[in-house]
């Protein structure tokens, strides 16, 4: 059953997407990747399949077809109930050895970045981390995998020329969500796990769900960050009200940490945490380089500062020059109005 991972020939065919399903939730990046996978499969002229590994996954299968999979490979076993690297990697690797896809993708999530390196090692093939652009080279049909490195200071295009499958994890929310077409169907291929609970070396004991206030900074989608410009701890309430409306997490500068307004685990920057939220709102932050390196790759940045020459405006998509006392409550009220009308959904 063990095939040697060599490239070439027509044995390695098809684009696969591993669908991330855990604790009853599907990571949306799985569907984004089916959308992207469709384009790659069309460029190569091969089929697109979903891979579903877990327990009680039946309800997810029609969703995978709705988002464009032509085939779904399923491994459903009680051992796979809680995500664990070893049995998941075992299931995915067995499928790869048996059905030999040319390309296999997964979200660059906690799960994807945990399991894919294990699979790549078992297959002795290359893996590109955290890609933001994928293309098929017209001449060679190799997968061109582009990713940021050095904390986002450089971009690199990576190739895996001589081994198969070509593997990549892809950053969530970068690829477009494809259209969901109800009622599509395709072939379902089921395989056994072939691993017993006794053989698994880890056990999930508990899961403690975080809320917006306690969520880890680098995982938050929306951040409201404060700097020394808010003047005092009691003014944090302006930021908190805005954060509540947006479902955002509070963060801040080293200045705000040293002043004792926020704790160190909320600090963004060189000596804090590097963040990449969808939206970063900077309030009373000057934009020192040590702060900017930790947040400048955010998708969208809004800055509020009363100094029109503040450096933070150089990285902000939109800046409001003004006093946070006036501007922030106005923003909060405006977001509240719009979100309640459901415009954002």
């Amino acid at each position: 059953k063990k095939s040697t991972p060599v490239a070439g020939g027509d044995v390695w065919s098809g684009v696969w997407v591993v669908i991330e399903y855990n604790r009853g939730e599907i990571a949306p990046v799985s569907w984004e990747l089916l959308g992207e996978g469709r384009k790659l499969a069309d460029d190569i002229g091969c089929e697109l399949a979903g891979v579903l590994v877990g327990h009680d996954v039946e309800a997810v299968i029609p969703e995978a077809f709705a988002y464009g999979a032509e085939k779904v490979y399923v491994v459903d076993d009680p051992v796979l109930k809680d995500y664990r690297s070893q049995p998941y990697a075992h299931a995915i690797t067995d499928l790869i050895r048996q059905y030999q896809p040319e390309i296999i993708l997964m979200g660059a999530t906690a799960m994807g970045r945990d399991v894919f390196p294990v699979v790549a090692t078992m297959m002795q093939t290359g893996l590109t981390a955290d890609c933001t652009v994928l293309r098929i080279d017209e001449a060679t049909k190799h997968l061109l995998q582009t990713r940021p490195a050095f904390g986002g200071n450089i971009m690199a295009t990576i190739l895996c020329k001589t081994r198969r499958p070509q593997m990549a994890t892809v950053r969530p929310r970068v690829m477009a969500m494809p259209e969901r077409v109800e009622g599509r169907s395709g072939e379902i291929i089921r395989e056994e796990l072939g691993l017993t609970e006794e053989e698994v070396l880890t056990k999930v004991v508990d899961f403690i769900k975080g809320d917006a206030k306690s969520i880890f900074l680098d995982k938050a989608e929306v951040l409201v960050a404060v700097g020394l410009g808010i003047g005092s701890k009691k003014n944090l309430v302006f930021a908190e009200e805005l954060a509540d409306v947006l479902g955002a997490t509070i963060a801040g500068t080293r200045g705000a940490v040293e002043a004792g307004w926020i704790t160190h685990d909320r600090q963004v920057g060189q000596t804090g945490i590097t963040v990449r939220p969808k939206l970063y709102i900077a309030i009373g932050i000057s934009g020192a380089i040590q702060h900017l390196v930790g947040m400048e790759t955010s998708d969208f940045i809004i800055a509020v500062n009363n100094d029109p020459d503040a450096s933070i405006f150089r990285v902000a998509n939109y800046g409001i020059v003004g006093d946070f006392n006036e501007v922030v409550p106005a923003l909060t009220a405006e977001f509240k109005k719009r979100l309640q009308h459901g415009v954002a959904k």
């Binding site: 809320d211 995982k219 938050a220 929306v222 509540d244 947006l246 955002a248 954002a344």
Partner: peptide, 9 residues
Amino acid sequence: MVSPDAKGG
């Protein structure tokens, strides 16, 4: 936008 009840996750 993340809806407030999505709690950032």
